[in-house]
């Protein structure tokens, strides 16, 4: 991952961690946060996902 917008993020050993940007309003019910990213290499989909510590699927 080379860049990521609309969220705080950091690169980890196996991927990235994106966080809710501080100072912004919480997500209201039904609201969505869109994160744009660019990455190097061929397109791929992460093989694991977790949100607030709970597994999610992509």
């Amino acid at each position: 991952m080379t860049s990521l917008r609309n969220a705080n993020w950091e690169s980890t050993e196996g991927g990235i961690v994106a966080r809710h940007p501080p100072g912004t309003d919480p997500l209201a019910p039904g609201e969505a946060a869109t994160i744009d990213f660019t990455a190097e290499g061929p397109a791929q989909t992460p093989d694991s996902c977790s949100l607030n510590g709970d597994a999610c699927s992509l």
Binding site: T2, G15, A18, R19, G30, E31, A32, C49, G53
Partner: peptide
Amino acid sequence: SAFSGQITVTNTSRGALADWELVLAS
């Protein structure tokens, strides 16, 4: 050599979702 995309986190609960943290591993 590169790709771009979009990740969307949607709050489907009845309350506000604050301080979320998304971990993606490849």
